[in-house]
């Protein structure tokens, strides 16, 4: 049942200096289907693969709008994500109410970081079993952040978390220099290509299993910034994007590692 004596709670270190509950929580993130995020100078994009438990069931939501300028992509326990999502929503509303501005994305992410860290240091608590990619725009432009159950948060240029996300990350690493100057459509296409890398053989991106979320802050000629609120696109709204990456050649190295059917 237990892997060892040191994983009953999150307040005990193993002799090797590890906290197993936190590491198990990180494993839960890897069970979730893959999500990819990329930020350019003007946009922040999230793309996700949605799973359905069986052919007859609906697909699980992966992208959630938090406030008009921020959205998240989740990998792991959806119900834990909902707790974090509600918390972030409340904080953003509160910040808007007191200061009349968008909550800076970094501040927001640091808040859930601190919140998650508490669960890794108190007896009887459980770390969140979910990883997030937080994409948003604020006065400093577009941002992408990674959040892990350990409470770790980090700003990223591009990242992927979830099952088989290593392949997506490899794609992103290969193309990292292109992202900064990509326009909105190119950025989404890069996201979808990264997503395709992580698919098991004979699975494809379809309008049913793909979600796209975009937020933007485009500088106009007169120096003002036009903010594109975070919006999630599903179904027929993603058709054109999927088709535009459909005839790309097969991603290298597909079909290895653990399968996607890890969730019960």
């Amino acid at each position: 049942m237990f892997r060892n004596n040191y994983d009953n709670d999150s307040v005990t270190f193993s002799p090797q200096g590890r906290i197993f509950q936190v590491e198990y929580a990180a494993e839960a993130v890897k069970q979730g289907s893959v999500v990819v995020g990329i930020a350019s100078k003007t946009h922040a994009v999230l793309v996700a693969i949605k799973r359905n438990a069986e052919e007859l069931s609906s697909y699980q939501k992966k992208l959630f709008p938090i406030d008009e300028h921020v959205g998240i992509a989740i990998a792991g326990l959806t119900s834990d994500a909902r707790v974090l999502s509600n918390f972030m929503k409340q904080q953003c509303l509160g910040h808007r109410l007191t200061y009349g501005r968008n909550m800076p994305v970094r501040t927001l992410v640091e808040m859930i970081g601190s919140k998650a860290q508490i669960n890794t240091q108190h007896y009887g608590k459980r770390p969140y079993g979910v990883g997030l990619l937080v994409a948003g725009v604020d006065d400093q432009g577009p941002h992408l952040f990674e959040f892990q159950p350990s409470g770790m948060t980090e700003e990223m240029v591009a990242f992927a978390i979830g099952a088989r996300s290593q392949m997506a990350r490899t794609y992103l690493e290969k193309n990292i220099d292109k992202f900064a100057d990509c326009d909105r459509e190119e950025l989404i296409r890069h996201g979808l290509r990264a997503l395709k890398e992580s698919l098991v053989q004979d699975r494809e991106l379809t309008v049913d299993n793909t979600s796209v979320g975009v937020a933007g802050a485009v500088k106009a000629d007169d120096g003002s910034t036009k903010v594109e609120p975070f919006k999630v696109y599903d179904q027929q709204d993603v058709t054109a994007w999927i088709e535009s990456v459909a005839d790309d050649k097969e991603g290298a190295g597909a079909g290895e590692g653990e399968g996607m059917e890890v969730d019960p």
Partner: peptide
């Protein structure tokens, strides 16, 4: 620095 509290933000805060 971009994103710092401007006068409008400050006024909102003081009003609250």
């Amino acid at each position: 620095p971009a994103g710092q509290l401007n006068a409008a933000n400050l006024h909102k805060y003081l009003s609250k």
